[in-house]
Amino acid sequence: MTRALHHQANLFVSRLDEQQRRWYCALESKRLGHGGEQLIARITGVSEKTIRRGRRELAAELAECPVGRIRHAGGGRPAAEVRDPELESTLERLLAPETAGNPQGRGKYKRSSLRQLSRRLAQGGHRASADTVGRLVRKLGYSPRVNARRKEAKSSPPERDAQFNYIDERKEEFLAKGEPVISVDTKKKS
């Protein structure tokens, strides 16, 4: 009987967020009285220190606990670009030679996947997951998805990358001379 009750309590506790878990354990320990904190800690695996914190918060009628959040503002680890201030500018430099625009819209596209960009950043000493790279790519105004032509290019000949590099080199030459660069998007008609 006791084992089944403990199993149900642990099942219930596993579905709660960290605040709710702390408060539930605090209520149960208070209900049990003397030795309740140790018993609830042993049953649920929640530390006695956490249960005591829950009891203090409940005694204060949750006055210090933020509504609609689990943690206080500023909680959690700092964003990757805060820890590494050069990350965003390095990513922008990686994207510059492979940027393509959508002639019908204002979106910018890239040729590399988020994982490829993450690996290239790591090679340069800037650690960032593909998710972080995706967030930064959106912040820089790029679509996080690989351009559709890039997906088609997997079946294209290997010279295609050389073509892109050639175009990028010519573009840089013209920009260095202060001359305009015009991009023309054409479709092959069969």
Rank of each mutant, 00 (worst) to 15 (best):
R3K: 10
A4N: 10
A4V: 12
L5N: 09
H6D: 04
Q8W: 08
S14K: 12
S14T: 14
L16N: 06
L16H: 02
Q20A: 04
R22L: 08
W23H: 04
Y24P: 05
C25Y: 04
C25M: 06
E28M: 15
R31P: 05
G33N: 06
A41R: 09
I43T: 13
T44P: 05
T44I: 07
G45D: 06
G45H: 05
V46A: 13
S47D: 14
K49M: 10
R53K: 09
G54V: 15
G54F: 14
R56P: 01
R56T: 12
A59G: 04
E61C: 02
E61M: 01
P66R: 12
V67R: 15
R69D: 03
R69A: 08
I70A: 07
I70N: 09
R71H: 04
R71V: 02
A73G: 06
P78F: 10
E81T: 04
V82M: 08
V82W: 06
P85A: 03
E86W: 09
E86Q: 11
L87V: 13
E88K: 03
T90F: 00
T90N: 00
E92P: 01
R93E: 03
R93C: 01
L94T: 00
A96R: 14
P97K: 00
E98H: 03
T99F: 07
N102F: 02
N102H: 05
G105A: 05
G107Q: 09
G107A: 15
G107N: 11
S112K: 07
L114G: 02
L114R: 09
R115M: 14
R115E: 07
L117T: 04
R119Q: 11
R119W: 02
R119K: 10
L121P: 01
A122D: 10
A122H: 04
A122T: 05
Q123H: 02
G125P: 04
H126F: 00
A128Q: 06
A130D: 10
V133W: 01
R135T: 05
V137Q: 10
V137D: 08
R138K: 08
R138A: 15
K139S: 13
L140W: 04
G141Y: 14
S143P: 05
P144A: 12
P144L: 08
R145W: 15
V146T: 15
N147P: 02
K151P: 07
K154H: 10
S155H: 15
P157M: 06
D161G: 05
A162M: 13
A162V: 14
F164S: 13
D168E: 14
D168G: 08
E169V: 13
R170V: 03
K171T: 03
F174Q: 11
L175M: 12
G178F: 00
G178E: 00
E179K: 09
E179F: 11
P180L: 13
V181E: 10
T186Y: 07
T186V: 08
K188S: 10
S190G: 13
